[in-house]
């Protein structure tokens, strides 16, 4: 599903080049759940940004669902994301001026094929997704009126709105208490299994990473280990 080859990223910092990612090769299978772990500054977020086509690598290529992202324009990559990718962020990033329901509707409205769906269908789908994350009664609330956990659940509903083939999650529980975080991860896994989405999770929480099928460790921009978790999410599901 995702293939990165010789991926490097260099930023200029104080006039000096800073190599944040150094010749990373990576392959993520379809429908798998991969956790990327590492200390602060190890290049996790940069890797996630490159895999999602949010930035361009200094060297190397990224192919997602058979599409070489480097051959696409910036808007081309945006279109690609609208069709294939979902996001969950550490700070939720709900649009503050939109209600919970409207936030979930946004990805569906952004898709080119949205023209074939009418507003009512989109609204009903969004409502169903909110129901799925247990927030049907909060549909008309604005993000500021929701708790952190509720906001992240709305963000999850938004992420799955287009039934994306890949979901990128950047420290999705980083701003939540343990219990709420746990509930959010469970939800994420359930949706992943239901919709057969490939899940790429960036975290420095090893407990959270243990839910994944596979854990990739980064240090100083290089992959230092790539391990398959025995049991992984099945182990969690069996509990």
């Amino acid at each position: 599903m995702i293939r990165a080859e010789g991926l490097s990223k260099v930023y200029m910092s104080g006039g000096q080049p800073l190599r944040v990612l150094d010749r990373v090769d990576l392959h993520v299978e379809a429908e798998s759940f991969v956790a990327v772990v590492g200390p602060s500054g190890s290049g996790k977020t940069t890797l996630l940004g490159l895999l999602a086509g949010l930035d361009e690598p200094t060297e190397g290529t990224v192919t997602v669902a058979g599409e070489n992202l480097q051959t696409l324009t910036e808007d081309g990559r945006a279109r690609f994301r609208a069709e294939n990718v979902g996001f969950v962020f550490q700070t939720f990033h709900l649009l503050p001026t939109l209600t919970a329901l409207e936030n979930v509707m946004v990805p569906m409205e952004l898709r080119d094929r949205a023209s074939q769906e009418n507003g009512r269908t989109i609204r009903e789908k969004a409502r169903a997704l909110l129901e799925r994350v247990g927030l049907e009664d909060r549909a008309a609330h604005y993000p500021a009126q929701l708790s952190g956990g509720e906001q992240q659940r709305v963000a999850l509903a938004r992420a799955f709105a287009n039934e994306p083939r890949i979901l990128f999650a950047d420290e999705p529980t980083g701003n939540l208490d343990r219990k709420t975080g746990h509930r959010v991860v469970e939800l994420m896994e359930e949706l992943n299994q239901e919709l057969k989405t490939t899940l790429v999770l960036v975290t420095h929480d090893l407990d959270l990473a243990a839910h994944a099928h596979r854990t990739i460790s980064l240090e100083d921009g290089r992959i230092v280990s790539d391990e398959t978790n025995r049991g992984g999410s099945e182990r969690e599901a069996a509990k």
Binding site: L54, E74, R81, P96, V106, R111
Partner: peptide, 16 residues
Amino acid sequence: VITVAVLRCLGALQRT
């Protein structure tokens, strides 16, 4: 800026 960046992540085009 953040709103715009998030929408770009979700696939919104620059011109949109």
